[in-house]
Every structure is written in C-alpha cells, then in structure tokens.
C-alpha cells in the first residue's frame, strides 16, 4: 500500500538529510528514524526515512533465494550494482561481517 524505496543517506543536518536513490538526490526527513547516519541505507516513504535496511538480512534473503534457486536460470547476482560492478556475493558470505 505504501510505496517506499531504498535510499542511501548522503549527509544529515539535524532532522534533515540528503538521500540518494539511483543517482538522484532528494531532501528527506529523518525525524522518524533518528538513529540514521550518513552511509546508512533506509526505506524512504513520502519524503521520510521510515526504516533502516539491514544489510545482513538482505544478504541472507538473497542467499536463501540462491539456495532455493541454484544457478541454471539467468544469473541473479552478477548484474552491476550501483557502485561497483561485482557484487561478489559468493566470495564474501554474509557471516564475514565487518
């Protein structure tokens, strides 16, 4: 029901932030997500960050899809990401956290 997109926080200034979505920058409010800091990925809804995106959970979900869907179809994770060309998911399993 509610459109929300993953956005990266580029800078914050009090309750305001600049976020980036696919190379596009927009003003957003982080008043509903005070813990958000620069570099975080958040879900953006109607100009507000409403939730943190959890990287480990995201990777686990992707790994689960891969497990349930072993290679054979079109490769799922080889497309270029927004910042680097190689997601390298298999080489760096989620367990190797920072």
């Amino acid at each position: 029901m509610c459109l929300a997109v993953p956005a990266k926080i580029i800078e914050t200034d009090g309750q305001q932030a600049i976020v980036e979505i696919g190379g596009l920058r927009k003003q957003a409010s982080i008043v509903l997500l005070p813990e958000a800091v620069t570099g975080d990925y958040v879900l953006l809804h109607a100009g507000f960050a409403i939730s943190m995106i959890d990287k480990k959970e995201a990777l686990e979900t992707l790994l689960l899809f891969e497990e349930l869907a072993p290679p054979g179809g079109r490769p799922g994770l080889s497309g270029p990401g927004p910042e680097d060309g190689d997601l390298g998911l298999k080489e760096t399993p989620a367990a190797d956290d920072e």
Binding site: L3, V5, I21, G22, G23, L24, K26, L44, P82
Partner: peptide, 12 residues
Amino acid sequence: KPSVRAACELFG
C-alpha cells in the same frame, strides 16, 4: 537510465 528508474520507484 538508473536515475529515471529511481524516479519511477520513488513516485510510482
């Protein structure tokens, strides 16, 4: 373009 796709996601 990625930015067009992003705008489409953002504004439905």
